[in-house]
Structure formats: structure tokens, C-alpha cells
Design a protein around this nucleic acid. Sequence first.
DNA 1: ATGAAAGCGCTAACAC
DNA 2: GTGTTAGCGCTTTCAT
Lengths: 359, 359
Amino acid sequence: MAKVTIQEVAREAGVALGTVSNVLNHPDRVRPETIERVRAAMDALGYAPNQSARLLAGGSSAVFGLILPHMTHGFPLQEASGAQSEARRAGYDLIMLNSAGDPEIERANLRYLAGSQVAGILIHPLCAQHVELPASRRAIPMVYQGVIGEGPGCRVAADREKQGALVAEHAARSGAHHIAVFGRSFAPAEVDRARGIIHVAHDATVQFEFIDEGAPDRSRDGFEVGSKLMRRPACERPDFIIGLTDALASGALAAVRAAGLRVPGDVAVAGCDGNPLAWIGDIPLTTVVPSGYEVGRRGVQLLIEQIELEKLAAFSGEPMDQDLSRQELIRPFLLQRASSVAGASLVGGMDFDVGAYLV
Amino acid sequence: MAKVTIQEVAREAGVALGTVSNVLNHPDRVRPETIERVRAAMDALGYAPNQSARLLAGGSSAVFGLILPHMTHGFPLQEASGAQSEARRAGYDLIMLNSAGDPEIERANLRYLAGSQVAGILIHPLCAQHVELPASRRAIPMVYQGVIGEGPGCRVAADREKQGALVAEHAARSGAHHIAVFGRSFAPAEVDRARGIIHVAHDATVQFEFIDEGAPDRSRDGFEVGSKLMRRPACERPDFIIGLTDALASGALAAVRAAGLRVPGDVAVAGCDGNPLAWIGDIPLTTVVPSGYEVGRRGVQLLIEQIELEKLAAFSGEPMDQDLSRQELIRPFLLQRASSVAGASLVGGMDFDVGAYLV
DNA sequence: ATGAAAGCGCTAACAC
DNA sequence: GTGTTAGCGCTTTCAT
């Protein structure tokens, strides 16, 4: 019972080889009762079509490939979940590869997918630099996630500037007088958010202060910045702190409380990137809802659009004059929690089932 | 520049087709300078070997497939990361499929991998029930993760009983007098942990109390149980609370503080499953270090062992009398944090870079 | 619906 | 080291 081929299924079912193939690929061309018989034979023999053979022979695959930059919590995972469910809705499978932060692995992953004849590739590149398909495979539909930029191609990213703007508007409207914003000026995501905030600050009457400590993006680092701020004399102390990442913000939140001040009574705190990691403390953090899920979904939709377009072109005689090009930004929205909204339930953040959300 | 085949690479490089193949599969058989020339040709043409063709022709793939039950935070992700890095160390690629909680998808994923001729399959099944390869593909090395059980096959799982035991021992040694344990008696993972705790309770002199509220596994649910406990008269109140999951425990922790009691001074709290989600609050939670990473690593190692064994058998004349069978439990270890250890730094939990850990 | 046959791009085995 | 060749299992097309 080693290798069951289509040939043996045909024999077992008492039909021709071609018929078995049709059952697999064009069930409409086969009489229902025959289909039944063939399926039974497949099950009896434990037949699993050899994907290599079927692709090599020109069949298509109904599998999308997704290349993740790494597998940490937050964005990439949300993207993967969104892509998964959208792909499945459309009848595609999704395989995921992880670049684990290494450009070399990223290249290898791309080569692999290119050589695997997947129906389309979703890639969240490690850096904004172009990562491209080998010249010989440019025909494979591809969508970049998490990056924007000029030039042809499809790109879907979260609107980070808008993320910052939302938080800033919230802070300004909250009645705060002195808003401190902190993060790292060398981290692209944080710079984008800061840009959004600056935009808002420009039109607002409140004081905005920008701080860059250049530290890594850990809660601990946020804690230190927060502590420093809290040690200031009361008149120079901000009454609203925006962390450009949720990890930083949650550290700052802890620092405010460690300093004996009330949140949000004395000092309000908000984060920016909707990372579930930061939603769990006993004072839930105001932040923006993760748009990664939506980015993943949209990415798959664009892949499918490209495929449809290609089909159309093939049908109407091969012109395919132009590739589909799209640049899309996914809008975030603000989640107002107890860290910045007096009166929000202290445990409000806890009824959020992160797991379910991500599925 | 549509389809670049091995043939064209050969022509471009001025060598034979077979030589190009050798560069790909047996570089040792080709003169270094020739390799150089061929590689250059590949790059120039943007050649990406057709995986289907190479597999179909009998080449092997150096790709492992990992089937995840879902993509929520915590265990599955750790497993994926562990598997990734171990696979990479051994020169394998890893592709991941997500069953998204649906047995049907799980079956489809398995079929796909079986038909894709991957070098080995790692599967974390949705339930402990057997999920098996189609009869015709039994030869593919396979390792089950997260389940244990009798019968042939390789299984690697976290030792959940031990997880409970570790936390219980910690509680007993901490000087607590009344330890409340809560979770859901219908959740296998929690039952296993509880079993470990019961074991310890049996030998201990402290009072253990087991509570099952049957609620879902969210922080909010833990908060409610915790609140109920805190409303008891002081003499009936536990001074140590163990949540059988970290989500539950973090909710309980919040409840204790909301009741105006000090943690760990008045009541200590600990969780069980090392879920990074729960490590972020401003009082970091005592829990066990995630062993998912180790499970993933070990799973890949077992896959490789199976492959080696097969090679050996093939070399020495095809007997391959017995398949490799292994049942392994991965030991957790305790992470003592401020929620149960007075004097542990209040921000100790924050210098933990979750992202880096998972990579 | 069947049977026959042509490849898909590659690997491995062969003779050179 | 090179050049040649036989499949791998499947899809598709064609005549029947």
C-alpha cells in the first residue's frame, strides 16, 4: 500500500484514468454516480493526489503563500489570521513562512514560494526595501503588506499616521493641558504615528511635547521614561502621556501609578498600536484597534482581484496590458479605555477575548 | 523572460543540463569555478527551481510542514517559533498551516501536506483524537505535538501536570495557609494541572481549595471568581490564589487589588501556563515558563531522527523493521514574579522582551 | 464517458 | 567532470 496513484484509483473504481482526473478537477463533466464510485475508491485506497505532479502538469493550486517578517505577537499574527479567513472564504488554502527577522531567510522563502507555483504571494517584508520575485516568476500575483510606496505593485498597510492622529485628537479633546509623546525617532512605525500627532498638535491649542529616549521598545523602557516625567515638578509634568507603542505606553502607565498618581485622574495614558499584549493590565490601555486583521484580508482580496484580471485577459486573448496596482491604507479606530477615560470600567479591558478576536 | 528552466540556465552558463542539476543537488560533484558560473547564470536569469518538478522527479524537499490548531497567542506560537529555529538549524524550511479550530480544515491541511511530499509533518491536533495520514502516505515522518497517549507514533507535549505541581509547591513553600485553585474541570489542560496540584496538596500541610466556576477562560472570568473570594470574611479568605490559566489568574490578581488588598502581601497570585499575555500588568504574574518553544524544537528533532533512521534502513537493505515511537513530556520551570514573591521588583516583569523570546 | 498520448521541469543513472 | 535519456504522476486534448 505504498504509492497509490491515480491509475490505481481508476482501476479500483473501474473507470478510466482521465475520469478520475476529471472527478478531481472538473466534477461537472462526470456523472454523479460515477463521481461517487471514484470517491469511494479514493477513500478505500487512501489516495492523496500528488501535488507536485498535478502542478507540474499544469493544474493550478488554490494555495496562497504568506511570508511573515517574524512571529511575534501583534501585527503579523493579526495579518495571518485575516489572510487565512479571507483565503478560506474564497476557497484557497494558505501556507505561511516565517522570515524570523532574517533577510536571507526572507529571500529563501520567496524563492521557495516562487518555485512552488502558488496561486499568489502575500509578503510582509522585513524592511521597506523592495523585495522582488525572481525575474522568471513575475507573473505570480503578489501583494506587499505593511509597506507603502510609489511604483507599480499592490501594497496594503495600516495607516499609521492616522493611528497617531486618532490618539492625539482623543488626548486634545480630553481636556489635557500638556501632552507628552514619546517613542523612538528611528523606528519607522513610530515616526509615522508621530507625524500624525504633529499634524493634530499643529491645529490644537494644547501643549505637545515630544520625547525620544532612543531605548528599545519594551515596557521597561516606557517605565523609565514615565518615571522621569513623574519626577518633574507638578507644573512641568504632563497630564497626558502618549506612548508611540503599546509596550512603551503600558510601562509608562505603570510608572505613573508607581509614582502614586492616579490614572487617568492625575495623568492619562494612551498607546498607539493596538497590541493585545498591552490590554491586559488591571487598568486597560486606550489604544487603536488592531488593523492587521484587515490588512491581511484586504491583501488576499487584492490577490484574488489580480487572478480574476488575469483570467479575463487570458479569456479575451492575452493582452493583459497592465498589471493591477494599488496602494491602500487601512484605517484604524480608537479604543477608549480606562487609562484615559475616567469612568470607563476598571475591568472593561478584561472582557475582551483576545484569542477569539484573532481567530 | 517568462519561464526560465534548468535548460536555459545550462545554456546561459555554457554547461550541461545535468551539471546545473548537480550544482543544485550535489555541489560536491562540480568544480567550484563551474558552480560559480552556473550560480551567476541563475541570478542573471532570475531562475527559481520548480519545486513540483524536482519533487516529482524524486528529489527530496528539505521542507517540514507544521499544522497549528489555531493562531492565538501562547502555546501554538511558541511551538511554531521553536520548530522554525530548530528546522533552520538542520537546514530545513518550515511551512505552517493553520487549522483555525476547524477539524475539516485540519484534515484538508494534512491532505495537502501529505500530497506535497514534505520531508516531515509536525501536527498539533485540535483534539486528542487520532488524526492520521492517508493510508497511502504513512511513510512520511510525522510527530504529534501537544498530545500524549499510547500506541505507536511520536508525541511531544508539555508536562502540564508538572506545571501544576511546580506552582503548587511554590505556593505551599511560600508560607500560605489557604490556597485556592480555580479553573474549569472540562478543560483538559486545566484538569492536568489540577491533577499535579492535587498530588502536591496530598503531601502538604496547607489547606487547598478547588473551585470550578465553569466560566470561559478570560481575565474577566478570573476577576469575578477573585471578587467572590475577596468578599468572604477574612478568616475564610485564601491567601494564595492559583489560576489554572494565566488569563484567569491575571483577572483574579486585578480583583484582589480592586478589593483593596495588597499583592502579594495579603494575597499572592500565580498562574499556570506561561502565556506572555499575562506578564504585562504592573504586577507581573508568577507563572511557568512557556515550554511550547521546547516542544516545537523537540518535535523537529524527532522528525529528523525518523529521517535518519529511514536513511539507515535504506542504506542497509530495506528492512526498517520498526518505526520510531516516542512519547515525551517537556518539563516546565517556574518563573517567580512579584505577584507571589514579596520583594520581587515591581517592574521586573517588564524587562522581558516577549518578542525576542519568541523569535 | 473512454483510451491513448504528449508533455510539464526536473533528478538520477548511464555511458562517455 | 559532460551529454543523454528515462521516467516521476498528473492534466489536457483528441479521437473514439
